[in-house]
Simulated assay, not measured.
Amino acid sequence: MTYFKKIKFSGGTDPNARVDPLVELPGGTFKVTLRVKGALRAKALATLLVSTKTFGNIKVHVKVRTSEGTFVNPITGSLSPQQIAALYCIVFHTNP
């Protein structure tokens, strides 16, 4: 699945992020879980990712967890371009 590969390989070799294997759920639905070290980074990543992506009749749900296993919710509300740029810096600053 191309979307899964985009998620998996966008992290490069970042030692602070891991993508779990793709899980197929009933009804043409799939789940991708990312595990991220650091609550701030996990929150930033959850905010930047599209949590549900639909391809025809296939849905992919993306979830972010901290390395301790806690699910993280995205930041809600409007963000300025500067705030979005700051989130990208938080997420990718250790990605070589």
Rank of each mutant, 00 (worst) to 15 (best):
K31W: 04
H93I: 03
G56T: 08
V60F: 14
G12E: 11
S67M: 08
V60H: 10
F71Y: 02
A86N: 04
R35L: 03
D20G: 13
E24F: 10
L45I: 15
A46G: 03
K59R: 15
V72S: 01
L40P: 00
F92E: 07
Q82K: 14
P74K: 10
A46F: 06
T70Q: 02
L48G: 05
I84D: 13
A85Y: 06
P26Y: 12
Y88A: 02
D20A: 15
P81Y: 05
F9G: 03
T94Y: 07
A46I: 05
C89Q: 07
H61W: 01
K59N: 07
P21C: 12
P21T: 13
L45T: 14
N73K: 15
P96Q: 04
F4A: 13
T2F: 12
R35M: 01
S80A: 15
A86P: 00
A44S: 03
S10K: 07
L22W: 11
K59S: 14
K53I: 03
N95Y: 06
I7Q: 04
V50H: 08
L45D: 04
R41N: 06
K37H: 11
L79F: 08
T70D: 02
L87T: 09
T76D: 01
K5L: 11
V19P: 03
L25T: 09
D14L: 09
I90H: 00
T47D: 00
T13V: 11
T52Q: 12
L87N: 07
N73F: 08
V60L: 12
L49W: 00
L48N: 01
L48W: 02
N73E: 15
I75R: 15
L49S: 00
V72A: 03
A86T: 09
P81F: 14
F30N: 10
A46Q: 02
L40M: 02
V32Q: 14
D20T: 11
P74L: 05
V23I: 07
S67L: 01
Q82R: 10
M1P: 06
A44L: 05
R35G: 08
K59F: 10
N57L: 12
I58W: 03
S10L: 03
F9I: 07
R65P: 00
N57F: 14
H61D: 13
K31I: 07
T54P: 00
N95K: 00
E68A: 15
V91Y: 06
V72R: 05
K37R: 13
S78Q: 12
V62C: 12
